[in-house]
């Protein structure tokens, strides 16, 4: 019996555009992401946010908390936009525009670090639960359930209360609210992936359990977690502001912070609504950027879209 001839023909998809390398799912997702206008808008907003945060001191016309115009602030009003102060003066006599730029730094650092922390710890718990069998799963998930049963803001308040009022406490507080989200999500995807045929195939091939979990199950479960992390960045930015608003945020008054700017705007809201408008807008727009990017990522990584 002779071998069948190689079954390739001119129109074969394998001899398509790029003869050297195949298109991995990651690369395909990246390609879809680049073509999605929503993703581009989201990425631009996020990029602007990051650039402002990083180069705040170069971009801002005045130093943070300069209080240069403190004398002009009265009990009922603050100076509005004018030459030299693009958005006017804030409640404590500093340039509102500069304060807004410095505030981005605070939101970004705390938002990113806390989400990363939540992601890493949550993912580790998720991998333990989803990859090490039923008994570990049982124990880990009960811990996660306990974390989940405490309202996230209450949890954050207690953590700040215990650790003291500083930015690290805020990070840990926000992160601990995210841990159960990531843990449950990753565990769920891993367990459903673990039931798939390719995992059965890997077992039958005699691969080690560690290889199967880390090399097969995990990479195929990351998509939803990446999407969730991006979406969580948006909630983290809001939560940073919320904690500050409640007086539980950064304790150092010299650090500009959007949430605290909102608090400061309260008593002069009627006469100077711009005090609340700009930080509020900054929070909303940066959160929107992450949300758009997350939604676009979800679309790009959706396995249904790849066939």
């Amino acid at each position: 019996m002779t071998m069948a001839p190689p079954l390739m023909s001119p129109s074969d998809p394998m001899l398509g555009v790029d003869p050297e390398h195949g298109t991995s799912l990651w690369r395909g997702a990246w390609r879809r992401l680049r073509r999605n206008p929503v993703a581009i808008l989201g990425a631009l907003l996020v990029l602007a946010f990051v650039l402002i945060a990083v180069f705040a001191s170069a971009l801002a016309p005045y130093a943070a908390n300069s209080r240069e115009w403190a004398s002009e602030v009265t009990l009922t009003s603050v100076p509005g936009p004018r030459e030299g102060n693009l958005l006017g003066i804030d409640r404590y006599g500093s340039d509102l525009y500069s304060q807004l730029l410095y505030g981005a730094r605070q939101s970004l650092i705390i938002g990113v670090v806390s989400t990363l922390l939540g992601l890493v710890v949550g993912a580790m718990l998720g991998i333990l639960a989803g990859g090490l069998g039923a008994k570990v799963d049982m124990v880990v998930m009960r811990i996660v359930d306990i974390l989940l049963s405490i309202p996230s803001l209450l949890l954050a308040v207690s953590i700040v209360a215990v650790l003291g009022q500083n930015r690290y406490a805020v990070m840990i507080a926000i992160a601990s609210a995210q841990v159960p989200v990531f843990a449950r999500l990753l565990r769920g995807t891993m367990l459903s992936q673990a039931r798939s045929d390719y995992v059965l195939a890997a077992t039958s091939l005699g691969l080690r359990r560690r290889t199967i979990v880390m090399g097969h199950v995990l990479p195929n479960s990351l998509g939803p977690t990446i999407v969730q992390a991006t979406l969580n960045l948006s909630t983290a930015v809001i939560e940073v502001a919320a904690l500050s608003f409640l007086g539980l945020g950064e304790s150092d008054p010299a650090v500009a912070e959007w949430g605290r700017m909102l608090v400061a705007a309260q008593d002069r809201f009627a006469s100077s609504p711009q005090l609340a408008l700009w930080p509020g807008l900054a929070i909303a727009v940066s959160a929107l950027g992450f949300t758009l990017l997350g939604e676009a990522l979800r679309e790009a990584l959706d396995p249904k879209g790849r066939r």
Partner: peptide, 30 residues
């Protein structure tokens, strides 16, 4: 190690291949 000597071919070829691995990895990993 016994599993090397007894192999399996599956019904659904797409589902039984890890979608994130290249063919080279699929064949060489075992």
């Amino acid at each position: 190690s016994m599993r090397r000597r007894m192999q399996m071919v599956f019904q659904d070829p797409l589902a039984s291949l890890n979608p994130r691995q290249s063919v080279e990895t699929i064949i060489s990993e075992p």
